[in-house]
């Protein structure tokens, strides 16, 4: 890739940042060039973000209809899944899955709530609430 071919596609996913990429200058030397992004990267990052957002939206809907605890929504909103939340809290995965059920969540001890709150970086009281929109 030549320096003048380094993509400058203004990826929204870079949030205005520029990333460093190596490319060949006119003298044939590899040099660092700042890039405003490549569309290919935007496509795949957008796909990953979209997957996470739709998981959060589905969990939001489940929590609104009482099928799941709001904890499930907060887990996905923090870009986690049951496996990662289990690793982060130090709990077994099957326990985390169980705690995502509304009736089980309602009986969680303050100590367990605090563990989830720490893992998700939220105040414990917020775990039982939902924002109006996902």
């Amino acid at each position: 890739m030549k320096t003048e071919d380094v993509p400058q596609d203004d990826n929204y996913t870079l949030g205005g940042h520029r990333k460093g990429v190596y490319a060949r200058d006119a003298a044939g030397r590899m040099v660092l060039v700042s890039s405003r992004g490549w569309e290919v990267e935007e496509i795949v990052t957008d796909q990953a973000l979209h997957t996470l957002a739709s998981q959060a939206a589905q969990a939001h809907a489940r929590a609104l209809s009482g099928l799941a605890a709001p904890l499930e929504y907060w887990m996905y909103a923090r870009r986690m899944d049951p496996e990662l939340l289990a690793q982060t809290t130090g709990l077994w995965r099957w326990r985390v899955r169980r705690h995502l059920r509304a009736e089980i969540f309602a009986r969680l001890s303050p100590a367990l709530l605090q563990r989830y709150a720490d893992a998700l970086g939220l105040p414990p009281a917020q775990l039982a609430t939902l924002p109006p929109q996902p």
Binding site: Y12, T13, L14, G15, G16, H17, T45, R79, L84
Partner: peptide
């Protein structure tokens, strides 16, 4: 994920 200066869209675990 927890570095606030990263753009929201790039914050993964």
């Amino acid at each position: 994920f927890w570095l606030p200066y990263f753009p929201e869209t790039m914050r993964f675990h």
